[in-house]
Design a protein around this nucleic acid. Structure first.
Length: 266
DNA sequence: CACCAGGCTCCGA
DNA sequence: TCGGAGCATGGT
């Protein structure tokens, strides 16, 4: 696993490279500072091993994709080392609601403000994981459900505030049961998520893939669809099989690289 | 000033 | 069912 690619490829928004090769971020209420050489330590820690999905054989998934679709090789080469994180479903849902018609730096800023500010970066040490309880965990659905649009004004997330509040209300009340979506049929899970105002096919699929680790979900991204049409005319994304999510992340990275830092989908 | 950001809602045809 | 403006905010 490549830490930089995995943490900065756009699947999560609460990690940053605080020093060359050193990454600090928050997940599951824990704040961690880590570098590539700490990989064995991550593997030995049950929480982080699960979060970084270190128990899954990505090399095999990668080879399967490259063999199935030779034109995917270039993207897979670029995405080599990316793991699909096991993020908190609620946090992932909010993150991708906030991501719509938005850019990654601003998404990160909004989420930082939503969590109540910056974490303090920890000095690196020679051995052992530098982790501590996060001073600014992601706010729960219950917390957010008690808020108003005026309360969220400081986030400066624009029209997305209303979407966030509807998601909070539906999740807190149990109208949408995120945990149940882990085992629900994919299409049913997608429909459930799309009952939330502001959640369309793209946000729903990203929540399924990044928040619920449904690797078979292939986000309905306009860039991806364009690349699909160009590379695999007539091929349904579902034929990617269990590694569909990984393929989506590879293609996403590839398209971004081709287009430069940002790209218009128009 | 224009254009656009890991889209979605809403409206009209 | 489909297309396109509008959406709030910030960056280039």
């Amino acid at each position: 696993m490549n830490l930089r690619k995995t943490l900065l490829c756009g699947q999560c928004f609460r990690w940053q490279e605080t020093a060359p090769g050193v990454f600090s971020g928050t997940a599951g209420g824990r704040f961690l500072t880590v570098s590539q050489k700490d990989l064995p330590l991550l593997k030995a820690d049950p929480f982080w091993c699960s979060y970084f999905d270190l128990g899954t054989d990505y090399d095999t998934l990668q080879r399967q994709l490259a063999v199935l679709y030779p034109t995917l090789r270039e993207a897979a080469q670029l995405g080599m080392g990316i793991h699909i994180l096991r993020q908190d479903p609620w946090e992932a849902l909010c993150s991708f609601i906030l991501s719509q018609n938005n850019n990654i730096p601003r998404i990160q800023g909004i989420i930082n403000r939503l969590c109540g500010g910056q974490e303090e970066s920890l000095p690196p040490i020679m051995s052992g994981l530098r982790q501590q309880k996060s001073l600014h965990p992601f706010p729960s659905a219950e917390t957010l459900a008690g808020q108003t649009e005026q309360d969220l004004a400081p986030l400066r997330c624009g029209f997305r505030a209303r979407y966030l509040l509807d998601a909070a209300e539906k999740v807190a009340s149990g109208t949408v049961n995120l945990e149940a979506l882990r085992t629900a049929p994919l299409e049913e899970a997608r429909r459930q998520l799309m009952t939330i105002i502001g959640v369309g096919p793209k946000v729903a699929d990203c929540t399924l893939l990044y928040g619920l680790h449904r690797m078979e979900a292939f986000p309905k991204d306009v860039w991806i669809k364009r690349a699909m049409a160009q590379w695999f005319p007539g091929v349904a994304p579902s034929s990617f099989g269990p590694a569909a999510g990984l393929a989506q992340q590879y293609i996403f990275c590839w398209v971004r690289q081709q287009a430069g830092r940002t790209v218009s989908h128009k």
